[in-house]
Amino acid sequence: MKFAVVVFPGSNSDYDAFYAASRVVGEQAELVWHKDADLKGADAVILPGGFAHGDYLRTGAIARFSPIMGAVTAFADRGGPVLGICNGFQVLLEAGLLPGAMVRNDRIKFVSQLVPVRVEQTDTPFTAACAPQQVLQLPIAHGEGNYYAPPGVLDDIEANRQVVFRYTSPAGEPGADWNPNGSLNNIAGICNRRRNVVGLMPHPERAAELPLGSVDGRVVLASVVKALAAVSR
């Protein structure tokens, strides 16, 4: 299979995602410039972390107008798997491909640390290879990862099982002490209703090899390989 990793001006985890997809998971991967109009025949798309367009105005607010986003939206509408990591998640929120919005972390801190994240749903293309309730050690690095959705929307997201990742203790227990940024309901990642578009603040691509402190992120990218293989079978 083939991954497309979108490169916005200001992306900084683009090559990490490309490396994890191609060298660690061992699939084809191609970097796609944000001014390109097509996804080069990719089977899965990654919007990487960073500060697309300098995060001017709001995080992800300008990136959603990049020419490639037309192709990303069309790909998502066809059911193609799309993963937004950190800034990529923020872009998906601004583009309306995922519900809700990000506000500044509750303590105004830029948080950069390894955190436990519990997998809440295994029926998305990016968690298909996870065990239910599996706790992953993943790095976060953001100043604006405080997930917000209006009360009615938040209830819908929970009712439709759209919360895919939640911040918890290493044992998988949620609690205020384990919430690094103030996100409502300890939300670290969500999916759309169709479940093919997933966004998360933690960086699975930065936790794909032992020298980086964790290999738990591999399963997120490996999941889409498994999910696509199951579809084509």
């Binding site: 506000v103 500044r104 972390n105 509750d106 303590r107 105004i108 405080n146 917000y148 209006p150 009360p151 103030g182």
Partner: peptide, 13 residues
Amino acid sequence: TLKPSVFDPQGSV
């Protein structure tokens, strides 16, 4: 402005 229901961490600092 942020809606009244949305916590404003910058404002509170």
